[in-house]
Design a binder for these strands. Structure first.
Lengths: 200, 200
DNA sequence: ATTATATTGCACACGACTGTGCAAGTTACG
DNA sequence: CGTAACTTGCACAGTCGTGTGCAATATAAT
């Protein structure tokens, strides 16, 4: 295998990440173009369109899983904020997976890939609901989905509006904490009192 | 014009509302089938596919505008909750428009249709930020978009999970108020202390 | 330099969907 | 009734996307 071949493969994946965020079913033509290749060449790297998507989703899932893996904290709410914080680094992958979470025949794949992350979130919420640090007026499963939505809309806002890094990072945490029941002030105080939630 | 003709026209619009929520670019075949018509007949009512969508969006926008028109209250936060409350009645239309708000070539149309509603929300937020009842750590325009997202995800949750009416109605308000800075408890208290926010 | 490896352009088959024309059928309505 | 309004089925053209075959060309690597 040649060096430029693997570079082009990466370029295709990167291009797909961008292009699929703009249009969930962007033609291969567009993806290839952004990668500086011809449509025909795509088939030298991926047998079918679905193969490309599959690779995007699974590789994305691994990165996300890695980013969230080390997260741990005794207070479930801080844990949620930490997860949100780590997620910020993986925006592109996250958004690609979000796009396919609802639509298309790949939604099963996406769901599987995101399962571990969702489990961690649900667990933290359940724990927080038990000790009173998280609202108890919404069933855990439903609240978990809503938290996911909140994080997603913060991430979307961050990347469409080209927010400066620290602001976007903080926004994601603020929204997650707000959804979980904290007031704006309480959320801000919590973030400021925990150095591990700082922008680094 | 015959009576059954206008009935079929309505049936087509209703079918489109359902089918387009399942799949944003559902084929006319599917829509026609759900309406109990043949694909060919659709063209007896709408010149093109876009005409159908246009009608859906604009008629939906008018309903929503009407629902929100009468809303007024001295406290901006209560006003936001009221808007959220009224929105709940129009879920179906809202969701169709939400689908096309992001994707598709009609997003401009949708944006225009939703403009008045967005203006009201932004205004209430700005007013609240001035008198301190709404968080001030997020720029008004951005917060308005985030509130919109929150409402949308609540509405989505409500209609996919088949929640009972009152619960869904309350959820929409809770999420909007939470996004705007209130704690879960404060939001619940506010809703309970204002009879006009009750489920009717 | 020579060779294995990649990329390209073009042609083609295939499928899904839109939009149109037209003749034959069905149904509401006066 | 009987007629005008509506629906249907089918055939067809046009568009856009995928996936493949192949010959020509460019490029990395030894």
């Amino acid at each position: 295998m040649r060096r430029d071949a693997v570079e082009n493969r990466e370029a295709l994946l990167a291009a797909a990440r961008i292009e699929l965020n703009l249009d969930a079913d962007a033609p291969l033509e567009a993806i290839a173009a952004r990668a500086g290749l011809s449509r025909r060449s795509v088939y030298g790297h991926f047998a079918t369109r679905d193969d490309l998507l599959r690779e995007l989703i699974t590789s994305g899932a691994t990165r996300v899983a890695g980013a969230v893996a080390g997260v741990d904290h005794e207070h479930p709410v801080v844990r949620l904020a930490l997860i949100a914080s780590r997620l910020w680094r993986e925006v592109e992958d996250i958004r690609v997976m979000a796009v396919f979470a609802v639509r298309g025949p790949l939604k099963g794949l996406t769901a599987d890939a995101l399962a571990p992350l969702r489990a961690r979130v649900a667990e933290a919420i359940a724990e927080g609901a038990r000790d009173g640090s998280v609202r108890g007026d919404i069933p855990v499963a439903r609240l978990a989905r809503l938290v996911e939505d909140a994080a997603l809309s913060a991430l979307a806002e961050a990347s469409t509006d080209a927010m400066p890094g620290p602001a976007a990072h903080r926004l994601v945490m603020l929204l997650v904490l707000g959804t979980v029941g904290l007031s704006a002030d309480a959320a801000a105080a919590l973030i400021d009192s925990h150095p591990e939630l700082d922008w680094s």
